[in-house]
């Protein structure tokens, strides 16, 4: 399987199917037990960690809050791989973060403590941090978690704009069939016992494939332009 520049891939499967583990392998955080992963035809193991951080960024499901920090301070951490001066943050980095906060609708919360944010707001902080990191490969683990329907749609536009703008690649793991259907051109569908099928989203998302993958009857409702999926 190859993810090319400019492509948005989805990874769909049941809870516990191994979506997060696959993303962590792609991010170089864990090593796959079998098979190998290469970035620009160079095996992942040959890159040093800092170089990978400039190329690959990942949105995690883990909570960012812990020791106190503000939204701005947290999003600014996305610029860490660029190794600015030891003591001062560059004005360029600060400007990048300000712009992203504006884009993600977090500007009004920039001085708030992470601990005081709602689940959806924290998710936005994670997304803003990833955008500040500005990698060539975006790995997103359940990006729509806790987000309202309007921002979910906006996030899709923002991320697709990024991918198209800098010929990046995007790989998004979720259990939300409708979100990958709107978002991704290509899709990997995880089935029972480690099998999978992959291809164009339109071809993969059939009632039959989904019902097998989720082990439950799933129906498709289409009005000609778009389709939604729902369980019986």
């Amino acid at each position: 399987m190859t993810i090319k520049q400019g492509e948005c891939w989805g990874l769909l499967g049941r809870n516990g199917a191994g979506k997060t583990s696959l993303l962590k392998c792609l991010a170089g955080i864990i090593k796959p037990r079998e098979g190998s992963i290469s970035l620009d035809s160079v095996p992942m193991g040959n890159y040093d960690r800092n170089h990978l951080a400039l190329r690959i960024g990942m949105l995690f499901q883990e909570n960012l809050s812990g020791l106190p920090a503000t939204v701005f301070e947290t999003v600014l951490l996305g610029r860490y791989p660029y190794r600015g001066s030891l003591l001062k943050d560059s004005l360029e980095d600060i400007q990048i973060v300000e712009d992203i906060l504006e884009e993600i609708e977090l500007s009004t919360l920039k001085d708030r403590e992470l601990g005081t944010l709602s689940g959806g707001e924290l998710q936005k902080v994670g997304i803003a941090l990833l955008l500040a990191q500005d990698p060539d490969v975006f790995l997103l683990d359940e990006p729509s978690n806790h987000l309202d329907i309007a921002f979910k749609a906006r996030l899709k536009t923002i991320l697709k704009g990024r991918v198209a703008g800098k010929s990046a690649s995007l790989f998004l793991a979720t259990h939300d069939i409708n979100y990958v259907n709107e978002f991704c051109d290509k899709l990997v569908l995880l089935l029972e016992n480690g099998d999978f099928i992959l291809g164009n989203t339109q071809d993969i998302l059939t009632e039959e494939n989904l019902s097998t993958a989720f082990n439950s009857k799933i129906s498709k409702f289409s009005n000609g332009h778009s389709a939604i999926f729902f369980p019986h």
Binding site: K24, A27, I29, R49, N50, H51, L52, A53, L54, I56, G57, M58, F60, E62, N63, L64, G66, L67, A69, E73, T74, L77, G78, Y80, P81, L129, Q133
Partner: peptide, 16 residues
């Protein structure tokens, strides 16, 4: 600062 936000995010931002 990065490690304070968690191990996974620290690794993915390139911290050893």
């Amino acid at each position: 600062n990065v490690l304070s936000r968690g191990d996974l995010i620290a690794v993915s931002l390139g911290v050893n």
